[in-house]
Nucleic acid binder design. Structure first.
Lengths: 183, 183
DNA sequence: AAATATACTTACTTATAGATAAGTAAGTAA
DNA sequence: TTACTTACTTATCTATAAGTAAGTATATTT
């Protein structure tokens, strides 16, 4: 991938997380990168292509993290996930799912599919860590691991959304409570 | 409020919840109501005015519900809240906060303020019901009631978002677990 | 009966969106 | 050296967005 193309994807990722997919335009990308609108279209003919790439990138990053965390005990791996969200919160960004899910109906089929893939992969990963962590007595919770994964994921996602509206401390209160509840 | 004006607000509310604030236009309102674009501008000079009214309406509806539920025990009142979200889920809609929070930065100051007000009122109400319900031994949970309110609110909010992406059963799994965790 | 307010319509403006066609400079490969 | 690719630019298109000015029909008030 050329340097410009990578810059476009990175900037688009930020814009999606800061303003939402339908609220940014190619101009928001071409202006800061000091290229023409058509240059963005050269790399990504349609906006949907750019959106799909942004989600793909996120999937890759998640896969890299999972690989990196592999050696850690399950409770620590989950803490690492929380830290990823914490970093987003610090930068005033919401997660991709939080940003794209509300506009889901307006997204192209490829974007919808990639977003589903992302959601499933993250939930499956989290459910597995929860289940293994519980078996090893590192974690404590009731019910199916997958249901618990859903609860934690939705807590993290919406904590970023609410933080934006009610102030960044909301994230900390939520993430601390989530981790305490698992002990 | 005139009949047309009410229809406009109702439809705008649906559009916000289905497509997001930045993804619908006055045409999406004027066409189905069989009026002209300018008629919508007559009632709501700027889109932001319409958005503010939509949130105001939601606040009123919430206040009415709270009044209606007043006699019930706290655990039942919380179940009523869950039912409101369930209804949204059935109609493929997300809640106002879930829809508007991602685009928060692109909203006008009055819309931002009203949204904050909405978030605070709902969280304060929920925290109070949790606290009272715990004191009466109707509910069981650890930590501050406000923190628990944050967790439950984010679960409900994001369950609607995730449901849209991964299928409507997600909402049921989450809401059931939320209620079980309080017993 | 005249004046005024309400609730619109017609007909427009301005701005911006996403997208495309055609061209070009620089590099690569046969 | 010719052919072709990559990575753009310039210039433009079409569609649509939000918004407005001016006119009109109807009902209400004075």
């Amino acid at each position: 991938m050329s340097e410009t193309k990578e810059k476009i994807v990175a900037l688009a990722g930020q814009l999606v997380r800061k303003k939402g997919f339908n609220a940014f335009s190619y101009k928001d990308i071409s202006d800061p990168l000091e290229i023409r609108n058509a240059a963005v279209h050269y790399h990504f003919p349609a906006k949907s292509d750019l959106g799909t790439e942004v989600i793909g990138c996120e999937l890759e990053k998640f896969a890299e993290n999972v690989e990196k965390w592999k050696g850690l005990p399950e409770d620590k791996q989950i803490m690492k996930l929380v830290e990823v969200f914490q970093k987003h919160n610090k930068n005033g960004m919401v997660c991709l799912m939080g940003s794209l899910a509300p506009d889901f109906e307006t997204l192209s089929a490829p974007m919808q599919k990639k977003l589903q893939q992302m959601g499933n992969e993250m939930l499956d990963w989290l459910a597995e860590k929860l289940e293994k962590g519980r078996r090893k007595k590192l974690l404590r919770f009731e019910g199916h691991a997958y249901d618990r994964a859903l609860l934690i994921m939705t807590n993290l996602q919406s904590s970023l959304l609410l933080s934006r509206v009610l102030g960044p401390s909301v994230f900390n209160r939520i993430s601390e409570r989530v981790l305490k509840d698992l002990k």
